[in-house]
Design a protein around this nucleic acid. Structure first.
Lengths: 106, 106
DNA sequence: TACATGCGCTACATTATATGTAGCGTCAAG
DNA sequence: CTTGACGCTACATATAATGTAGCGCATGTA
């Protein structure tokens, strides 16, 4: 069972709920996105994420580490093996967003 | 170009940024998830989302409508055609979360 | 030795966001 | 003419994110 100690409202502990809860916090998805092409240092990541405050960035990184989605190694923060698979979903979102932009521009 | 009037920090207007920004607000992903098996009324949706406050629910629904991801018809709130494709990503997240739960439980 | 640079943060006051509770106006059924 | 479900809105309170400053550590350079 995933670590629920970082979750907010949902109390069922269902993995999908824990996941949606985590991804639904500001900057979490963005951080996942910015890690897509390799490891990033803290400051590097901060810059890529529109200069998010270090407080928030650190909170998110801690949560993602606790969930074993990312890891902190030599070279910086990067996906774990499992996290990589989640990161690939970001690509799918990117593709969807491209079609979305096309269809909404009329 | 997607409607950016609801977005927060990111100012590039890149579709993926607008999308990540929207999905990164609390309850947005959860609402998408709860709409996966058909239309839901406002109150029904509220109940499914751990009794989220009507204020917040209404804000999120408005944003999702503005983005043409969901629609409000007879029968309740539901995905648009394009929104359905995004909704399918929720399934992928669910599948990932199941593998995640397995691998983290040791 | 001293100084600069990049690293990962922490502290803290301010501002933005979400919550919880109450209740309004509309409609359709009994 | 009341009851229930509908989609909300108002507003005070609580929680989360922001912006700025700066710390301790390591590595490099003069």
């Amino acid at each position: 069972m995933p670590d629920r100690s970082i979750t907010r409202g949902s109390t069922t502990g269902r993995p999908i709920m824990v996941l949606l809860d985590a991804l639904g916090k500001r900057w979490t998805l963005r951080i996942m996105w910015e890690l897509r092409d390799g490891p990033q240092t803290f400051r590097n990541l901060q810059e890529r994420c529109d200069d998010v405050s270090p407080t928030t960035l650190n909170n998110r990184l801690r949560e993602l580490r606790k969930m074993a989605i990312i890891d902190h190694r030599e070279g910086g923060y990067c996906y774990t093996a499992l996290g990589t698979e989640l990161g690939e979903q970001m690509i799918a979102l990117d593709q969807w967003s491209a079609r979305w932009a096309d269809s909404v521009k009329d």
